[in-house]
């Protein structure tokens, strides 16, 4: 199974980055009419993109749709891709915008509780989540699930942009600079969204003990 590609920050300088060189070469091939060369990007980034989108929309089928849509949009827009950022940053931005557009068109997104309920029934299209429990007691497991459900619900209450920023920071462990590049926001605005998101979460999780 292919592993996730390294992020921008973990790579060496642009000029000596073989991954970047390879991507630029693939882009040149696609632009020259070799459509199949685009599959390289799909196969390289589909897992990472799907995981990000799933964290945002919390629905397996919806995440699949948005992921596919993002790649198709990226293909269409490839002639305009200037290569100033990495392909990964660029496609991440496309996906975040796609999630936001869908959220505008279709409200509300499937709530996390719906996903959890579907998992419980074993009827979801998404394979059952691997629940990392410590196995010490059913009560503790149940409490962990409750906290998880509450966090999920709190996340769905955030605005799409706050959710994107928050998920990239705390789920994807991306840096503020990476988040800024992927969302098109300056670092101060990213921090502002993070602060607001955390405050909203705090309000929703206040009674957790």
């Amino acid at each position: 199974m292919p592993t996730d590609p390294p992020t921008d920050e973990s790579r060496p300088a642009r000029e000596a980055d073989p991954l970047r060189e390879k991507e630029l070469e693939q882009i040149r091939r696609v632009r020259a009419g070799e459509v199949d060369a685009f599959e390289y990007f799909v196969r390289t980034y589909q897992r990472k993109l799907y995981r990000l989108v799933l964290s945002l929309v919390r629905d397996g089928a919806e995440a699949d749709n948005v992921t596919q849509e993002s790649f198709v949009k990226a293909f269409r827009a490839l002639p305009d891709f200037k290569g100033e950022s990495s392909f990964e940053t660029w496609i991440t931005r496309i996906a975040i915008n796609a999630v936001r557009d869908r959220a505008r068109r279709k409200k509300p997104v499937v709530s996390f509780s719906d996903l959890a309920a579907a998992e419980d029934e074993g009827s979801s299209d998404v394979p059952r989540a691997i629940e990392p429990t410590d196995g010490t007691s059913p009560e503790r497991d149940s409490l962990s699930r409750e906290i998880r459900r509450r966090i999920g619900e709190a996340l769905t209450a955030l605005t799409p942009r706050q959710r994107a920023v928050f998920v990239m920071k705390h789920y994807e462990e991306r840096t503020i600079a990476e988040i800024g590049a992927a969302t098109g926001l300056d670092e101060g605005t990213v921090k502002s969204h993070l602060f607001r998101a955390a405050r909203k979460l705090r309000q929703r999780l206040e009674d957790l003990r």
């Binding site: 897992r47 799907y50 995981r51 799933l54 964290s55 397996g60 998404v126 394979p127 989540a129 691997i130 629940e131 990392p132 429990t133 962990s144 699930r145 906290i147 998880r148 509450r150 966090i151 999920g152 705390h170 789920y171 957790l208």
Partner: peptide, 13 residues
């Protein structure tokens, strides 16, 4: 809670 949620999503993928 955060770690469990994050781990579960990763597990799904």
């Amino acid at each position: 809670g955060l770690l469990i949620d994050r781990g579960a999503l990763t597990g799904i993928v």
